[in-house]
């Protein structure tokens, strides 16, 4: 297949081959969708119940928060950074925002969002400053705050939990509301992810994030305000994690200090499976969202098939390896195809 692809690449006129190259890039996302389709197909064949309304809705709801976090993480990862704090941040935000609602009955739900956003943005600013100004590797910074934030969460929450019946029903209903069978939240998140992808694709500052991840030194020489862009990426990622925490609280209703534990790794997994290069420079928010959808689907499929959830993690890991192998394979092939083409051009 590869040689056929190469041959076609070389034979096309520049104008058409450009579109073809574009196509291959999007093919990364097609790849995920294909895997998704296969997975759904196989699961449904074994257990037809898998495609019923309830299950689909469940998967979509599970995906929403996941995909939202993946959007923020994508913005960070394309700049050749990583944000490992999102799971802890989600937990802290979920606890504090829901506690505000349960302690002060009758205050508007929007306050919870402001609390979550504030917490997330605050930590995001801190991460951004340490990474962009003090030049500490983001892996170290966010690994540290992963534990710090979780620690704070545990101290504040102690052994207590916020229970669903202490929360206003408008808050709880928010995440499960659906219109014509489609969860409203899923639609909202889809729009947000779409907007994020559009931003990354079509705006100067969005493209600059890729440039920074693709060649940090080159970005500096090109006069890109790298520090400011990376800072912004961390603030966005933090803010998204904060808001996602509020949605988490609304979705689960019962929140203790362990909410979102280890979630950051799942988010990174979704991003990588979605075709975002872990060393920055390429990948899309849409791909990351599909990565999240795929992982959530696998989760649910294994549950429906009655396979132990222990397998779940092993299979997720396997898929990450496959996704990365595919990614490498494509890029190696693409490079050699492009090289051949430029030789042809030169001759």
């Amino acid at each position: 297949m590869s040689s056929a692809l190469t041959g076609r690449l070389a034979a096309e006129e520049p104008g058409r081959s450009r579109r073809l190259v574009d196509l291959i890039f999007r093919a990364r996302e097609f790849g995920i969708i294909a895997v998704l389709a296969i997975f759904v197909g196989v699961t449904t064949a074994i257990q037809p119940r898998f495609l019923d309304d309830q299950n689909i809705k469940f998967v979509l709801l599970n995906t929403t928060i996941f995909a939202l976090l993946a959007l923020g993480e994508t913005m960070v990862v394309v700049t050749r950074n990583i944000d490992l704090s999102v799971g802890s941040l989600l937990g802290l935000s979920a606890f504090l925002s829901s506690e505000v609602l349960s302690e002060h009955r009758g205050i508007p739900v929007v306050v919870a969002f402001l609390v979550g956003l504030g917490i997330g943005a605050g930590w995001g600013i801190l991460h951004g400053l340490i990474v962009a100004v003090a030049k500490v590797p983001s892996l170290v910074v966010t690994l540290a705050t992963l534990y710090i934030i979780r620690g704070i969460d545990v101290v504040i929450a102690g052994g207590t939990e916020v229970v669903a019946n202490s929360l206003p029903s408008s808050f709880l209903g928010m995440s499960t509301a659906s219109f014509a069978g489609v969860p409203v939240l899923a639609v909202v998140v889809a729009c947000v992810v779409g907007a994020g992808a559009f931003y990354l694709r079509s705006f100067r500052s969005g493209r600059e994030l890729y440039a920074i991840g693709s060649n940090p030194e080159g970005a500096r020489l090109a006069g890109i305000p790298s520090g400011r862009r990376v800072f912004t990426a961390f603030v966005v990622s933090g803010s998204i994690a904060g808001v996602a925490g509020v949605l988490w609280a609304s979705y689960y209703g019962t929140i203790d200090s362990t909410a979102g534990t280890n979630y950051e790794l799942q988010v990174v997994a979704a991003v990588v499976v979605g075709g975002v290069a872990i060393f920055g420079g390429s990948g899309s928010a849409i791909g990351a969202a599909f990565g999240a959808l795929l992982l959530a689907t696998i989760d649910q499929a294994l549950y429906v098939l009655g396979i132990s959830s222990f397998w779940d993690q092993a299979i997720s890991g396997l898929l990450i390896v496959l996704a990365i192998a595919l990614d490498r394979g494509i890029s190696v092939r693409l490079t050699s195809a492009l090289r051949k083409r430029s030789l042809r051009h030169a001759a």
Binding site: P14, S17, R18, V21, D22, S331, L334, T335, S336, L338, R339, R341, S342, H345
Partner: peptide, 8 residues
């Protein structure tokens, strides 16, 4: 080709 990526 202005549309191709710089890698390669």
């Amino acid at each position: 080709d202005p549309g191709r990526i710089a890698r390669g």
